[in-house]
């Protein structure tokens, strides 16, 4: 005890407040990671491949949201209904952009190779190529400097949790990601479309005997994952701003989250995202802010060593 004990006692309230503030931030980041991770896990489920161009889906969503905000948000920060409307417009635009870019990636970098029965390594390389092409194109077109997004809402605290403020930004992330995730989860579990996706994930050939169009199902998983990834890019950019390289680190962390939760497993992607987001955020208190990325990717290495199937294991196939 000694000096450290006295320090703890004296600063307990401050530490507690800091802890909860960071926890809230970690949860919000975790939801964003989860939304991106869903894209990895869905595509992995049906193709057994990691879409390493998914980072650019995220980036495109960020830019789509940025352009909509820049066009529509004026000098003063909007509030009330106009805020809600603007955020919804940003979500729609970024979701569409994400879906579009994901579809392009599937058509160009994946389907062409599938037609030729290419080995797995070829997909990896073509996805990385597509990623470089897309982010460099964005850098060329939109500039190489980070630009902040015009704010469509006033970021005041909405409520407090153990004394720590929960700002509007976090509430938006929470509402949007939970809504999208629950909708996706239900669609996959209960609809014919979802049954088709699960059938392809479990046994693609037999699924085709049942009349499931495999190409179409694969395209749908890219669209769905692209939509969530694009919206995540918009929500991320609202706070941090957008730049052509913005996809790299968050997407790599989301990939970590997907592996952590069990790649191929939808709920695992969300759980993995949350765990990773909270862990790396709290690392500011317990380790050092500079070690955030070390902690995040340390987790990836650890998971791969200890439990390669992740927390929940692979089971996109399952209904629950």
């Amino acid at each position: 005890m000694g000096a450290f004990g006295h320090y703890l006692a004296a600063h307990f309230d401050t530490l507690k407040l800091e802890f909860w503030a960071l926890f809230v931030g970690g949860v919000a980041n975790g939801f964003l990671y989860g939304m991106i991770a869903v894209g990895y896990t869905l595509v992995y489920g049906v193709l057994r491949l990691i879409n390493f161009a998914h980072s650019e889906v995220f980036m495109s969503g960020g830019f789509a949201g940025y352009f909509v905000m820049r066009a529509l948000v004026g000098q003063s920060v909007p509030s009330g209904f106009s805020s809600v409307g603007l955020i919804l417009l940003g979500i729609v635009a970024s979701g569409l952009a994400g879906a579009l870019v994901a579809t392009l990636i599937e058509r160009v970098a994946y389907r062409t190779l599938r037609r030729r029965n290419a080995p797995k390594l070829a997909y990896l390389i073509s996805a990385i190529g597509a990623s470089y092409f897309l982010f460099n194109l964005a850098g060329k077109e939109f500039g190489h400097l980070s630009v902040s997004m015009p704010q469509p809402y006033i970021n005041h605290p909405v409520f407090h949790i153990f004394g720590a403020p929960v700002e509007m930004y976090y509430v938006i992330i929470l509402v949007v990601s939970v809504a999208m995730f629950v909708l996706l989860d239900r669609v996959v579990a209960t609809t014919k479309l979802g049954r088709g996706i699960r059938a392809v994930a479990q046994d693609a050939e037999t699924a085709s005997l049942m009349g499931v169009n495999i190409d179409r199902t694969i395209a749908i998983t890219f669209i769905v994952g692209g939509t969530l990834g694009g919206v995540a890019g918009f929500l991320f950019g609202l706070n941090i701003g957008v730049v052509y390289t913005m996809g790299f680190v968050p997407a790599l962390k989301a990939f970590t989250a997907a592996v952590l939760g069990g790649i191929g497993n939808l709920r695992g992607a969300m759980i993995g995202g949350l765990i990773l987001g909270i862990f790396e955020s709290l690392c500011v208190v317990f380790v050092q802010a500079a070690y955030i990325d070390v902690v995040a990717f340390g987790i990836l290495v650890l998971v791969l060593l200890v439990r390669p199937t992740g927390i929940l294991g692979e089971r996109l196939g399952r209904s629950a």
Binding site: G196, T206, A207, M210, V212, G317
Partner: peptide, 17 residues
């Protein structure tokens, strides 16, 4: 080639896809 992670009922529904 039963879909292993689907219930019997869901397997039947797959047949009627």
């Amino acid at each position: 080639r039963i879909f292993p992670q689907m219930s019997v009922e869901e397997n039947l529904e797959m047949g009627a896809f």
